[in-house]
Design a protein around this nucleic acid. Structure first.
Length: 359
DNA sequence: AATATTTCCAACCGCCGAAGG
DNA sequence: TCCTTCGGCGGTTGGAAATAT
């Protein structure tokens, strides 16, 4: 038996909103607020609309200070960088772009930005030559593929299991309230070093195949990132100013599970961060119409396509563009301490990428 | 000018987690 | 602990508008 519908489907109007409906909804919310119950709201104000529909209409269209269209290049960069980093978490991305809604950004990405990237990459590939001026052969072409393909691969990895993402990169985390920071530190100091987060997130020799299977399985309808870290972070609000933060308040109570997450990052996360940095550099090139060469020396051809790996160490600074300088530097300096990175981890990630390309 | 195709985006759908009883 | 309700989210769709043939 299915779930009960949120409203009486037979008696609700669907489709585009009329100006009268807009005016009714807007006037009511501006005067009275939502009343804390979207489901009941349409009945209160005499609208034959589903409460969810009212909510969406308000959030995506009627709410004050909403911007539509006219995305700037800076916004493009932010969207792309965040998309690489965290995937299709449109609400989080929208939180970084004042006046933009998640729906708008999602539409923009799906209809324009993705094509923009793809189009430029195709052109770039077409003209690609290696460093000796020799045309790439088909093998090399196929192997190096496009930045977008890597992007997609990277995103799939991240969305399913890659721990080296926004969520595990302290440099990218929202700033915490001092009290929350203190709490994390306290909890960290109590932690004995076992790392449940990473145990969950990283493929182990025993479940490696399972991880790969999961990775290559298309996302099912409604599939979401069922990673507790993700949901934890979602509870930390992001500012509209472009700088993430965690405001104080009852909704922002620090969950103690953040402690192992933080520790996990401290201990292990630099490889994925480096990949991300390289991808972002590449992305920046695309967005800024810079010419790129994807010719890759054929030595070690298994990894030849992944020039992002070769660019490691060259672009880490690009990762921190939205963070405050001082905080980011301290955080990233920790995360770049490769001495703590398990070799197995690096190998496993490379293997995942390789496999993806060989399919 | 007519028709076909593509692009764009508002809105819907269904799932999930949180909250509360 | 279980169940229900609600808010929120991301994926998808329908159809209007724009563009190509």
């Amino acid at each position: 038996m299915g779930r009960a519908p949120c409203c009486d489907k037979a008696n609700v109007k669907k489709g585009p909103w009329s100006p009268e409906e807009d005016a009714t909804l807007k006037a009511y919310i501006e005067n009275n607020g939502t009343g804390g119950n979207w489901i009941a709201l349409p009945q209160k104000i005499g609208l034959k609309r589903c409460g969810k529909s009212c909510r969406l209409r308000w959030l995506n269209y009627l709410r004050p200070n909403i911007k539509h269209g006219g995305f700037t290049e800076e916004e493009d960069n932010i969207i792309c960088s965040l998309y690489i980093s965290i995937g299709s978490r449109w609400s989080i991305i929208a939180a970084q772009l004042p006046g933009r809604t998640d729906n708008d950004i999602k539409n923009y990405w799906n209809t324009r930005l993705k094509k923009k990237l793809l189009g430029r990459r195709k052109q770039s590939n077409f003209n690609a030559k290696d460093t000796n001026g020799i045309e790439e052969n088909s093998y090399s072409n196929a192997l190096s593929s496009s930045a977008l393909e890597r992007l997609q691969l990277h995103m799939q990895l991240q969305s399913l299991q890659n721990p080296f993402t926004f969520y595990n990169n302290p440099a990218l985390w929202p700033k915490l309230h001092p009290f929350q920071e203190k709490m994390i530190q306290g909890l960290q100091s109590l932690n004995d070093g076992s790392n449940p987060v990473m145990q969950n997130a990283l493929p182990s020799p025993h479940d490696e195949q399972g991880q790969k299977d999961e990775f290559y399985k298309p996302q099912q309808d409604g599939a979401k990132i069922n990673n507790p870290q993700v949901h934890l972070l979602e509870n930390i609000p992001l500012s509209n100013s472009g700088v993430p933060f965690a405001a104080s308040g009852s909704n922002n109570t620090m969950n103690s599970s953040l402690a192992p997450r933080a520790e996990a990052v401290e201990q292990t996360n630099n490889v994925g961060l480096q990949q991300l940095g390289a991808l972002q550099t590449e992305l920046d090139d695309i967005l800024n119409n810079r010419t790129m060469s994807y010719g890759v020396p054929q030595e070690d051809h298994d990894m030849a396509g992944f020039d992002c790996f070769k660019e490691m160490n060259s672009s880490k600074d690009s990762l921190i563009w939205w963070s405050n300088d001082s905080d980011t530097k301290s955080a990233s300096s920790n995360s770049w301490d490769s001495s703590t990175t398990p070799g197995l981890l690096t190998q496993g990630m490379f293997q995942d990428y390789e496999l993806g390309y060989s399919l």
